[in-house]
Amino acid sequence: MASSTDPSAAAPPDQEGPSDFDKLREPLIGRLSMQAVALLFAAVFVLVGILGFLPGITQHLLFSTGPRFSGEHSHAMLFGVFMVSVLHNLVHIAYGAIGAVASFFAGTVRVYFFAGGLVYLALFVYGLVIDQHTAANFVPVNTADNFLHLGLGLLMILTGLVLHVRLNRMSAEEVRDSE
């Protein structure tokens, strides 16, 4: 006997239960939304990387002497707050490109968020332990960058966890619906 929560149990005799398309549509939408979130993160990383090369948005870019590739001598400040360099900007663009590629595959989206979050947490710790006024600060980072890296690391890991739980829940529902 069908349970009262079974949608096909409440269907009138002239209607069938959920179609095969309906059973596949929800998991597909869930996977697509996970991939869309990754693509959104990727777009933001690429945008931030590009903005780091634009005078006015990035203060003290020093194009007259050439932008600094890396190091603590880069005085370029994205939005006047975050210390950046050519290397820093290229890393953001690369992160965005990796996220864009990862967004094509539901399984790699989780890896992108978990691995990316761990990298950003490592950058946070790196920024705390180095002397920001030495060659060890090759990325370069400042206090604002450190807290941004902490927030991004936590956000990416949390997003990966939420997406992981969602995907597992959808997979369990697919198995249950196929029985």
Score class of each variant (00 low, 15 high):
residue 141 V to F: 02
residue 167 L to P: 00
residue 19 S to D: 09
residue 46 V to T: 10
residue 165 V to W: 09
residue 127 G to Y: 02
residue 50 I to A: 14
residue 106 A to V: 12
residue 18 P to E: 10
residue 25 R to T: 08
residue 10 A to M: 14
residue 33 S to E: 11
residue 44 V to M: 04
residue 59 Q to H: 09
residue 41 F to G: 05
residue 166 R to E: 12
residue 162 V to W: 05
residue 125 V to W: 11
residue 121 L to Y: 09
residue 86 V to I: 13
residue 155 L to W: 04
residue 136 A to N: 07
residue 163 L to P: 04
residue 179 E to S: 10
residue 69 F to N: 07
residue 49 G to H: 05
residue 95 Y to C: 14
residue 154 L to F: 06
residue 122 A to R: 03
residue 177 D to A: 13
residue 154 L to C: 11
residue 48 V to A: 11
residue 95 Y to A: 12
residue 87 L to R: 03
residue 99 G to T: 05
residue 127 G to D: 03
residue 64 S to P: 12
residue 173 E to V: 12
residue 114 F to K: 02
residue 11 A to V: 08
residue 76 A to F: 03
residue 10 A to N: 10
residue 170 M to F: 12
residue 53 F to D: 02
residue 154 L to N: 05
residue 24 L to K: 14
residue 156 M to Q: 12
residue 100 A to P: 00
residue 3 S to R: 04
residue 86 V to Y: 07
residue 166 R to C: 00
residue 142 N to K: 06
residue 63 F to W: 06
residue 23 K to C: 12
residue 146 N to M: 01
residue 97 A to M: 10
residue 93 I to E: 06
residue 64 S to C: 05
residue 121 L to Q: 03
residue 170 M to T: 08
residue 129 V to I: 07
residue 93 I to G: 00
residue 44 V to S: 01
residue 117 G to E: 00
residue 143 T to S: 15
residue 36 A to V: 00
residue 113 F to V: 11
residue 122 A to H: 08
residue 100 A to L: 11
residue 77 M to F: 06
